[in-house]
Design a protein around this nucleic acid. Sequence first.
DNA 1: CCAAAAGTGTTCCGTATACACCCATGA
DNA 2: TCATGGGTGTATACGGAACACTTTTGG
Lengths: 235, 235
Amino acid sequence: MSTYPPFAVAVDLAVFTIRDGALAVLLVERGEEPYAGSWALPGGFVEPDEDAEQAAWRELREETGMERFPGHLEQLKTYSAPDRDPRMRVVSVAHVALAPDLPEPSAGTDAADARWWVVDDLLEGRDDLDGPALAFDHRQILLDARERVRAKLEYTTLATEFVAEPFTLPELRRVYAAVWGAPPDLGNFRRKVLGTEGFVVPTDVRGQATEAGGRRALLYRRGPAQVVSPPMARG
Amino acid sequence: MSTYPPFAVAVDLAVFTIRDGALAVLLVERGEEPYAGSWALPGGFVEPDEDAEQAAWRELREETGMERFPGHLEQLKTYSAPDRDPRMRVVSVAHVALAPDLPEPSAGTDAADARWWVVDDLLEGRDDLDGPALAFDHRQILLDARERVRAKLEYTTLATEFVAEPFTLPELRRVYAAVWGAPPDLGNFRRKVLGTEGFVVPTDVRGQATEAGGRRALLYRRGPAQVVSPPMARG
DNA sequence: CCAAAAGTGTTCCGTATACACCCATGA
DNA sequence: TCATGGGTGTATACGGAACACTTTTGG
């Protein structure tokens, strides 16, 4: 029979939102060693009386400062390399969260600072100064998280988690544009969303016009549908 | 700053194969409390110098008695409910493994017995005697694992992991029939597999005829392709 | 009346679907 | 030559790709 080696179990969070037409992720600046001064995904240890998902919701509330986090949360993958944390053996259950555009976050208790970063600036290895290198194995976690989000937009209704209700179809289309890098074809997009029963439910209200004028778009709310079949076409 | 509560970290394995035209999973009969005499997914604790995936490969070799397990392994999900193990706080990183038809397994060191079970007999809640109830939260893990396999067959080439090389297309088609409950349309199936570059690579050899005669099918090997786009149609 | 943004329609074409039909083999 | 299983062909229709066009609103 094997021994029962002691581990610490943590959760790490890749919290995504759409800011200025780009996919953005919440990072915190670490105040303590190791990696003091580096930027990392928010996270923390799982408490004795909670499971990983509850720990993730708790961290989400703490880091965003919101009583009730208004978005989607799901488990991503568990990272367990023996040397991923130099202090001790830490296994991290990574999660992905999606939220509509949120206010600038405030620094948490154990973080020096917290802010949103454009994901592509962090991950695309361009030499001209972009985002900072990430602490621990968080670059890999962020890569996996972005891929999960990209894939799930194709065959689920998850895009609606990135917009606040009520929302317009052009708003929703800009979510796809931000995540995929290019907007889906306008006509095909509308036929897909409106043709998928339960994707969105229309209201009889129209949104505000922009400064420069233009037709005012109809407002919608999220519908009960979860999957889109066949998948939304990726530009 | 939070405390660092101690956890045990384990891996559990849902090892699938196709036996007699049905999806089957490997279970072990527990020899110790808790749940002594119950059937459970094979698994064990992660050692100090390995990550979860290495632990899963090790358990796979131990449980199947094979030096080199001839199949596919991937992480499924992590289960961490505080009361999932009555002895102590155990977090389990569940994995899914796929293998071609394997010999009857031998009982491992800490298991009283080990055998294959038809998955539907374990999961479909028919009242007439089927499979046994599973230990811990392993019924839920098995449900999630089956769903992962079903889904992945649609948009990946993973079905080839269920057959031993070289294999015929009818053999491969029977994999889909077993997992989905009904075979995909013959013509469409062939066009899909042969039309997806790198799904299979043909040999110039034909397989054996069955007792009752009939045309001998061409033999193929796995190709380098990983994804099938658009997905294989689910009956 | 013009620009900007929302929304509609239409043609083309690949391909999934469903099903009928032909080929090879052993008893 | 018949049953069995492997393999091929085809009419239909759905839906994505691309793009032109119409409608509504503010300046």
